[in-house]
Structures are given as structure tokens and as C-alpha cells.
Design a protein around this nucleic acid. Sequence first.
DNA 1: CATAAAAGCTGATCTAGATCAGTTATATAT
DNA 2: ATATATAACTGATCTAGATCAGCTTTTATG
Lengths: 246, 246
Amino acid sequence: MNQNIALHNIPAKSDQHCCNCNLNSLCMAVSLDMTELSKLDDIVDRSKPLSKGDMLSNQGDDFKSVFAIKTGSIKTYITSCSGEEQITGFYFPGDLIGLNAIDSGICQDSMQVLETTTVCQVEFEQLDGLSTELPRLRRQLLKTMSKEICNEQHMLQLLAKKNADERIATFLLRLSNRFKTRGFSETRFRLSMSRHEIGNYLGLTVETVSRVLTRLQKNDYITVENKEIEILDMKALLNLTQGKDD
Amino acid sequence: MNQNIALHNIPAKSDQHCCNCNLNSLCMAVSLDMTELSKLDDIVDRSKPLSKGDMLSNQGDDFKSVFAIKTGSIKTYITSCSGEEQITGFYFPGDLIGLNAIDSGICQDSMQVLETTTVCQVEFEQLDGLSTELPRLRRQLLKTMSKEICNEQHMLQLLAKKNADERIATFLLRLSNRFKTRGFSETRFRLSMSRHEIGNYLGLTVETVSRVLTRLQKNDYITVENKEIEILDMKALLNLTQGKDD
DNA sequence: CATAAAAGCTGATCTAGATCAGTTATATAT
DNA sequence: ATATATAACTGATCTAGATCAGCTTTTATG
């Protein structure tokens, strides 16, 4: 039996439902049952793949939708009145972004695609409406925002207190952890962002990012080959993040 | 007629209801009508005044309640595994704190009273329950968290990109703004936190905080007398926050 | 009220990381 | 495949703010 033909018999769209999505245990759909999933599914718009550089939102836009990432990665950044950019986060499959615009009704940050990426778009008013009948969805939205606040509080600590080595080590371990959660390798992964973007996010210059990565490689904590990272000594990196240098 | 006696005829508790609270247009009660306010009132516990140094929560505690500040001020901070503290925010009357624990069910930060302070305590499970019947309350909780995320994103930018003068100027103007919103003077106020705490929050040492405050005073942008601040030249401070030095 | 402790200020020195400058490698376009 | 632009790396130098040290002022305590 020809597998290709068999595949053709299955409508391509069949995977394109929340109930079949392998991320429904990560995104806002977590904890919903089949009936609830289908209600969520009704208000989700799925995009064709977006290309590197595409914008999901621009700071100042009217707030309409939130986005759940299916594949790829996205950076969010705020632009100060003097035009300076500050990257506020990198997001991966299962992440839900855009909720920070609820208060003002205006997009508070810009969202740019870092590599070929697909997203699920949900109009916030519809999501908010659905959450009135699905307590678990309501709770999940609160949880998502709560977690986002905690993440940012840890970033505050990183920026206020940690040196360059500690920042980079923390960054790599945090990525490693997030990839692990998503079922990818925790020791080998590809950085979809540039050194410049890493530096911007971590409050360091490109040069410092380069130097630290080189140093970590010389210590045999990691190997770096362009955007490919392999973590060789997780424990050493973890010690670094805690300010120990032995 | 003796006013004191007249006052005695009014139960002391009469002000102690959401419907009479002068902060009900600032805290989570914003946008609730009288009926809704009274339902919120039913689940609010009001504390006797807390003293400087008292803890509202300790990082790691089970999450039970959120707090709305009535008078005074509170700092929140996270403690890293190596025991280092990072102040994550200063909070004033009308502010609602504790929502960042929703995700984990564990208090993610410690909350300490900076001066004599009174708070309204609300069990989160009750608040969450009430929010199912009061859409405006539900929306307000989302807004509060959304705003908190945006605030922290601006702090990320401050810590990643701004120099010491810009950080202090931004800090003072932000305080000024918050006092203004609360009906206090925007040009004269008292810092309830120490120089050490300001430095910790802004990623600076105490010495640098002192030096910058002295410098701003020498430039006639502000006057500093211990904890009393007067802003003399709002525009100059604003220019500073935008990285202009003329 | 006296006294100890904590908070705040200021000068001198040091250093992590920024800045500047140049090279090499990679990605994109022709 | 070749040219060009962009990203990444590395060395040399500079500097903002940390660190160290000593002093003064304010606050807390018996």
C-alpha cells in the first residue's frame, strides 16, 4: 500500500484543529476537554507560514488578537521614543503572546518572526467571551500572564545583578529547558536569533556576546558553530548562573 | 454641637467599605457599580495597620490571597538561590499585588511593608469565583496583570539600556506620576524606600544613587533633603530619561 | 537623653564591559 | 559561481560605575 496515496485521502486540514494539535498541552488549550477544545477551535484562525522578518504586530497598532505559536520563533520588542529597540522576549511553539495589550487596547510591543513560523490567531474579544463559559480557559489566561510576570521578574534580576557570563549561561539554560519542555533536545539546538539580538535582550554588546560564547567553548562547557549550540557541561553552566566560577 | 460626639455616632467601620473607599476608582474595584462593589466588599478582609518591616508574604509560601494597598507602601522582591535579593517593584495605594502567584500556586516573591500601611486582603479563590459573575471584575484582573507586564518590560529597557542618571530620572518621574494619579503632589513627595533599596531596584550601588541625586540637585533639577524630594525642573528630568543631556 | 547602629555622602581607585577598529566568515543577490 | 552585504569574531583602548575607605547625619534603642 502506497503511503503517499493513503495520506492524500486524509484532508490536509485534519491536523489543523486544536484537538489534533500536538501543542494543545502547552498552549492556552491546556486542560480543556474535547468539547471545550472544539469551541476554542471555532475561534482560531490559522496562518499560512510567515517568513523571517514578517511582523505580527507593530507597537501602537490597535489591539485585536493574541497569537499562539505553532512552529518557528518570534521576538517581541518595545521601541522607546528615541527609537531604541529593546527585545522583551523570544517565543516558541506553544507560547501565547499579545496579552500585554489588554490594559490599553493598543499593542505595546512589536512582534517579528525570526524564522519560518506558523501561528494561531485568536481575536481577544472572542477569546474573552469564550472564557466566560470555560472556567479552565479563563484560569489558563490568568496563568499565562502570571507566568509572564514571573519570567520578566527573573529577567529584571538578571539585568540588575548578573555579569556577562552569568547572563549568557542563564540564557542558554533557559532555552535548553524550553526546548526540552517542547520535546526537542535539551543539549543541541539552533539559535534562531542573531548575536546582536541576544545582546540586545541581555543588555550586552554583540562583541561581549561573541567573547563569552568563545570563552564558554574554550572551557568545554558548550560548542558553538554559528547558530548551532551544543551544551557539553550542563552542571558547569548551572554553576555559572549561580555566580560560582569553579 | 460637638463634632467629636457626632463622629462617635457614626460607626468607625462606615468608611471601611469598598463603596466609600476613595481608592475604588484605582484598585480592582474600578468600573464596578454599587451592587457589584458590595459583592466585592463581602470578600474583602481589612487589616489593622501594618508596621515598617512587616511581611505580607514570603517567597515560597502557599498562595492564598492578593492584596490591594489602602495606605502606605510595599516593596516586592525575589530571592535567588544564592540568597541575593532583587526588588521587583514598589507599590502604593490602589495597587493590587500578588497575582503573579496564580500560575504556580506558590508566592513567587516576598512583600515587605516600607512604612505604616493598611491593605485589603482578598482570597484569590473567592475573587476568581466572583469574577465569573462580574465580567468587569474579570476584565479588570486581566488589565491589572497586563499593565504589570508592560511596566516590567519598561524596567527591562531601563536596566538593559539606560545609564545611572537616566535610571534615577526615570524612577523619580515614574513616582511623581503615580503620586499625581493618586491625588498627591507630583512635585513634592517622600521616598518611603532607602537609597539601598532604590539602588537594588535600579541595578545600581548605593554610592551611585547618592552621587546621582547630589548631581541632579547641583543642576537644580531637584532638591533632596533626606527622603523628601522636590522636583524643580520636570522638563530637564524628562529630557534626561530620553538620553538627552542638555 | 545618650549612645549605638544604620543610612547617607564623598573621594580615590579599580575593572567589567563598552567602544573602536580591523579581520574573517556567512548569507544573499546577481 | 562571483560579488556584496551582513554577521561574527578578536584585539586594543577607554570609561561608567563598582569597589574600597572614611566620614557625617539620621534613626532606633535601652
